[in-house]
Design a protein around this nucleic acid. Sequence first.
DNA 1: CTGGGGACGGGGCCC
DNA 2: AGGGCCCCGTCCCCA
Length: 279
Amino acid sequence: MPRSFLVKKVKLDDFSSTDLESSYSRSRTDLSLRIRQKGYISEYINPSVYDGESDGAIKVPSPEPIYDGIHSDYGAPDSDQADSPQSEISSGYINGDNAVSEGYTVDAFYITDGRSRRKVISSPRAIQRHTCNECGKTYATSSNLSRHKQTHRSLDSKLAKKCPTCSKVYVSMPAMAMHLLTHDLKHKCDICSKAFSRPWLLQGHMRSHTGEKPFGCAHCGKAFADRSNLRAHMQTHSAFKHFKCKRCDKTFALKSYLNKHYESACFKGAFSPLSSLEG
DNA sequence: CTGGGGACGGGGCCC
DNA sequence: AGGGCCCCGTCCCCA
């Protein structure tokens, strides 16, 4: 599947030559381990970090071995079996029943990020990027850049438009159009009649009825219906807790845990921590 | 109180 | 311009 191949190549492109040499000569699982040694999942999901990987310091290695119950080798780079979880190639199965999941190692998880396609430098089109002079973001076409530039307009701009339903103001017409969709719940579940604004929201919802869990953790084998939930789960495998309470210094693996902490023990009845301590 | 998971929404980006 | 896909984030519930 060409798209999978490109995406995979993107990921490899972002590693140092040392990384590449070793990963080319070793299995994808080994590459996954190297990724985790470099700083676990959040650093490979966060686009800002990804865009400018500057810190090669070794942080906390994964406390967990790659889950043996699935096939976590996504194929060596010279293999034409390069796979993404979107692929029809079934490289790994978490469950033995009908709910078939493919195992996501940290790297495989990352490479399915559609945004990473921005970094496809092997593509001829990627060489001629159109750069926003305000924020430096680059786009494949001038049309896309033009659309993006709308987001830099001021809210006071004469071009700003207000949503007739909820009065939210948008300076970007594509964002406005996207927002208008959120008021149009035309995707309805045949089973429970719940309605959604986007087809993929309905898709995700349908999994709650079917039990389908396409997103599997390659570390422990647990499968999820929702990619975001797998992402949060992946963070629970990390021994590195990125989110620290600025009052009591307790650390948490997930920002949501820290927020919960702020709302409960540490700041109950006190001033709002979210406004004064975020950062 | 914390950790973890399920479900979902908003908005950005690509083709 | 529209559809598809994705990320980030939140809310809620439960152990």
